[in-house]
Design a protein around this nucleic acid. Structure first.
Lengths: 197, 197
DNA sequence: GTCTATACACCGATAGAC
DNA sequence: GTCTATCGGTGTATAGAC
């Protein structure tokens, strides 16, 4: 699961060090605020106050840096999902992460980047499969306790929930909200049945 | 709805001409095959066999070209939706467009680009609102004829359907398919109730 | 670990001839 | 309508000193 280190014939900095993390912090901020077009080694260096050359001491290529950034981000998100799964209202807490914690802009940038970067695509696949596994697990447990809650399978419900959450956050960010209330009410009604509070 | 023409102090080519369309064809092919990073005036020119300078005769800026490309594409898609709406199985035909016609890669590239290009963002908003209007309209008519089909509103169903279609096509393209059968069965069951064949 | 300096490619956009 | 030629800028990535 950890990164695989060096491709280039070049001295490389330690993975996980403070500077390494600071660079990913800078990269994340740039991607969030300015988008993929501005995600360059120069801009990252400028952001954290070092020289551009140093970026290539810690990361073999820009694609590696981007992949590493997604990995760090997705591991944090998976940890949130796992914690929510262990709580006493797992469905509500997982939904809360999907609809509130998720940054629609960041996700859309990564999805587009994954079209081009194969390593990143593999990381995205891993994240989708693992997060779905957690969600299906939580849903199956809930449906067992409240069997009349729905006719759909846990797997189907997980896909519907994540899809809808992504659409709502994305549309909200660009200023579309028609039908959002209705679909939120639908989700709320399901949660009330499947996980009575 | 038509494009608004010139910003620059420069001679410009006719909107809608053969060369103009050929350039958008080239741009679409580049975006589909290589992604937004490769979508440059030089690459487009190379693709259709003209010189780079000519791209700036037909389009004021690259951002304009990209926006115009999305506009052309979305108008075609809306026309498909309208035709499906007029058919005798509107729900099934609209769903068929969502799940088959849509190019997941192209859409993700445009969404990422819209984060940066304001004109494009406005076009995306327009497309979402108009396509949703058509879908809600079709769903309302169907639910009127088969009231017991579902407890959810037409607006909620439209969002769920488009969200799920986008997720399925995107995941399929990167090689994830867990739960897809289940959710397709769910959609099929709904269609069987709301639009019996 | 961090720096200066730099090679080299490519980009958007324009001037102006034919 | 289409071209040649070019400017100014920015990108990735490397060599090698301190």
């Amino acid at each position: 699961m950890a990164s695989v280190q060096p491709k280039p014939d070049r001295r490389m900095g330690p993975v996980g060090s403070d500077t390494w993390n600071a660079m990913l912090d800078g990269a994340e901020a740039v991607l969030r605020d300015e988008g993929h077009a501005a995600l360059t080694s120069r801009r990252i260096a400028e952001r954290i106050g070092v020289k551009q050359r140093l970026v290539y001491y810690y990361f073999a290529t820009m694609d590696d840096l981007i992949t590493e950034l997604f990995r760090r981000l997705s591991e944090r998100e998976l940890e949130r999902f796992r914690a929510a799964r262990r709580s006493d209202r797992p469905l509500r807490e997982i939904w809360d992460i999907c609809i509130h914690t998720t940054d629609a802009r960041l996700i859309s940038e990564f999805i587009a980047l994954a079209n081009r970067i194969e390593e990143l695509s593999a990381e995205v696949v891993h994240f989708i499969e693992e997060s779905r596994r957690i969600q299906v697990d939580a849903l199956e447990a809930a449906l067992k306790r409240a069997p009349a809650a729905n006719h759909a399978s846990a797997a189907a419900l997980a896909i519907v929930a994540t899809s809808v959450a992504l659409t709502l956050t994305r549309e909200q960010k660009i200023g579309v909200d028609s039908g959002h209330d209705d679909v939120m009410a639908l989700i709320e009604a399901f949660l009330a049945r499947a996980e009575p509070s």
